[in-house]
């Protein structure tokens, strides 16, 4: 992989993350996430880790994507979730969430700056390292969406995007060695199980109370 291809892929990931997190049409947002995960998979392949690419395509794109789409689908006699997110954004209502997101970003930024200054990382035009700024951008988008949205499906999407940002950062900082592959593999499995659980619960919650948020009493 060349540095310019890494830049192109990173840019594409950021654009797809925006599509996924900004769209109130939930089906389109989920589809954007599936494409996002496929581009992640292509990135792993280009970094020379075909196994991880296969795992990302299967666990991240196919299964997690299917789980998220399942939230919107029809199954059995449960009422169907509205296809559009009509909840008002959270705004400045939850300052703790915003503070946590900000702390996360500041810490990550400071650590990266310290790491780059220490000179322990190989710096001469390294392909992996050129992914790091995009990883940070993807994390910013994920954190913003996580603090901003109320709809639980969109928060699950934000969690998945944030996780992908962390994976990218991991590969960018430490290279795609076996340890990194192991960590990302566990992370993908956790994200899949978490998404499946979250979606099943969301459907159940909607069936019981017609609610798609964590706040009791708030309508869809």
């Amino acid at each position: 992989m060349t540095v310019s291809l890494a830049w192109a892929l990173g840019g594409l990931l950021v654009i797809l993350a925006c599509c996924c997190l900004l769209d109130r049409q939930l089906r389109r947002a989920c589809l954007a996430f599936i494409v996002f995960a496929l581009v992640m998979s292509f990135t792993w392949w280009q970094l020379g880790v075909p196994w991880l690419a296969a795992a990302e395509a299967l666990l991240g794109s196919l299964l997690t994507g299917a789980a998220l789409l399942h939230a919107l689908g029809r199954a059995g006699d449960v009422p169907r979730l509205p296809q559009r997110d009509a909840t008002p954004p959270r705004g400045t209502e939850a300052p703790a969430h915003w503070l946590a997101a900000l702390a996360w970003l500041v810490l990550a930024g400071l650590a990266l700056a310290a790491l780059l200054r220490s000179g322990r990382l190989p710096l001469d035009g390294d392909v992996e390292l050129s992914l790091v700024p995009f990883a940070l951008l993807v994390m910013v988008l994920g954190l913003w969406a996580f603090a901003h949205h109320r709809h639980l499906l969109r928060r699950l999407l934000a969690f998945n995007i944030l996780g992908s940002g962390v994976f990218l950062l991991l590969a960018g900082l430490a290279g795609p060695g076996p340890e990194v592959q192991g960590l990302i593999l566990v992370g993908l499995a956790v994200a899949l199980v978490g998404s499946v659980l979250g979606v099943l619960l969301l459907r159940r919650l909607y069936a019981l109370e017609e609610s798609v948020t964590l706040e009791p009493g708030a309508g869809p």
């Binding site: 996360w104 650590a111 790491l115 962390v166 950062l169 991991l170 900082l173 990194v180 960590l183 992370g187």
Partner: peptide, 14 residues
């Protein structure tokens, strides 16, 4: 768990 993973990423990178 993502905060944990990010911390691990930094330690592994360093």
């Amino acid at each position: 768990s993502l905060a944990w993973l990010l911390g691990v990423a930094l330690l592994l990178g360093a």
